[in-house]
Amino acid sequence: MTHPAPQFFDGPKGRRLAYHQTKGTSAAPGVVFLGGFKSDMGGTKAVHLQEWAERTGRDFLRFDYSGHGESGEAFEDGAIGDWAEDAQAIIEGVTTGRQILVGSSMGGWMSLLMCKRIAPRIAGLVTVAAAPDFTEDSMWAGFDSAQRAALQRDGRVALPSEYGDPYVITKRLIEDGRNHLVLRDPLVLPFPVRMLQGTADEDVDQSVALRLLEHVEGTDIRLTLVKGADHRFSDPECLALIEASVNKVTARVTRAAG
């Protein structure tokens, strides 16, 4: 299925954000996909969900943070706070009513920040290999003394990536991340939450999912572990599980509203 060229939204501080939006006919909450670190809205999960939304008549939004995909700015100039500002601005700016967020990897962290910042707009949450606080608990914690010294000296360090070019991690990314951690303070999620995690994920260990499950507070929170699934979580079975999770959250939200 082909999709038209993206639309653009004037985001915070003049950052130009690319997005695709589907206007549905359903009265159910809209769905917003929040992608991962150095990922983009053209990924398998995001496009699959748009096609699902078009089939089922659901409002749907996918977008690129600044420095990602088709949006403006340079990736290395961005940080967690910038991307959270982007997410909040575009959700508030182009969607109406309450939304179900689907956050993948870093998008899981972004989604949790949205649950704190714009709580009245959030109807439910689905996370896929959520990576909250990864700049601190994965990157900084995993740096050796030479990498930490390089970060302080040069303001950046390059990390190898199996997805292509090395990731350039800036000192600002690490320091700014500390201002947006979500696992250090109480985190109440008073709506249906479905968390998905693969056991063969080499980027986000399943211990992160278990820590998140233990940390959050709410009455309708479930974690599903998929044996053998990797970080991409994009094979047909995993995509079907994401769909099913959004449908389950929708049903719970609709029932509560009724």
Rank of each mutant, 00 (worst) to 15 (best):
Leu225Arg: 05
Thr44Gln: 04
Thr170Tyr: 04
Gly164Cys: 09
Gln7Met: 13
Ala119Ser: 15
Asp82Trp: 11
Asp59Met: 01
Ser111Arg: 06
Ala150Asn: 10
Phe9Arg: 00
Tyr19Gln: 00
Phe75Lys: 02
Gly14Asn: 03
Met114Gln: 14
Leu241Thr: 07
Pro166Ser: 08
Ser234Thr: 06
Ala200Trp: 02
Gly107Val: 07
His215Pro: 03
Asp203Asn: 15
Lys171Leu: 15
His180Lys: 03
Met139Glu: 15
Thr95Lys: 01
Phe75Arg: 01
Gly164Lys: 03
Ile122Gln: 06
Pro160Ile: 12
Gly67Asp: 07
Val94Gln: 01
Lys45Trp: 01
Gly67Lys: 03
Lys227Ser: 13
Arg153Ala: 15
Ala5Asn: 13
Pro186Trp: 12
Leu61Met: 00
Gly30Phe: 02
Gln206Leu: 14
Ser66Arg: 12
Met106Arg: 02
Asp230Pro: 05
Leu101Val: 06
Leu239Ile: 04
Arg211Lys: 14
Cys238Gly: 08
Phe75Gln: 01
Asp133Gln: 08
Gly24Pro: 00
Asp77Val: 09
Gln147Thr: 10
Leu49Tyr: 02
Trp83Pro: 04
Gly14Thr: 08
Pro160Asn: 13
Pro236Cys: 05
Ile90Val: 10
Asp185Cys: 09
Lys23Met: 13
Phe63Met: 08
Asn247Phe: 09
Gly57Leu: 00
Tyr163Leu: 13
Asp235Trp: 06
Lys13Ala: 14
Ser161Thr: 09
Arg15Phe: 04
Gly155Thr: 11
Ala146Trp: 10
Ala150Ser: 14
Thr219Ile: 10
Arg117Asp: 12
Leu212Asn: 03
Ala209Lys: 06
Ile122Lys: 08
Met114Ile: 10
Leu210Ser: 12
Arg255Thr: 15
Ala141Val: 08
Ile122Gly: 05
Leu151Phe: 05
Thr199Pro: 02
Glu54Gln: 10
Leu181Pro: 03
Leu196Tyr: 00
Phe63Glu: 08
Leu125Met: 05
Arg121Leu: 15
Val193Ala: 01
Phe63Ala: 02
Met114Ser: 08
Lys38Gln: 06
Leu112Met: 10
Val246Glu: 07
Glu73Val: 11
Thr219Cys: 11
Gly35Ala: 03
Asp82Lys: 07
Asp230Met: 12
Thr22Met: 00
Val246Tyr: 08
Ile100Thr: 08
Ser138Lys: 13
Ala150Phe: 06
Phe9Pro: 00
Ala87Arg: 03
Leu173Thr: 11
Ala74Tyr: 13
Asp201Pro: 03
Glu136Tyr: 11
Ile174Asn: 02
Thr170Ser: 05
Ala53Phe: 04
Ala89Arg: 01
Lys13Ile: 09
Asp144Ile: 11
Pro132Arg: 01
Ser66Leu: 07
Pro190Gly: 05
Arg121Trp: 08
Gln21Lys: 13
Ser207Cys: 09
Ser138Trp: 13
Thr135Glu: 15
Asp154Arg: 10
Val126Arg: 07
Asp205Thr: 12
Ile91Phe: 04
Gln88Leu: 13
Leu223Gly: 01
Lys13Ser: 14
Ala129Ser: 12
Ile100Lys: 04
Asp235Met: 03
Glu92Cys: 07
Gly30Arg: 00
Ser138Gly: 10
Arg178Ser: 03
Pro4Ile: 05
Gly57Ser: 02
Gly142Arg: 08
Met195Leu: 07
Ala257Ile: 09
Met110His: 11
Glu237Val: 15
Asp203Gln: 11
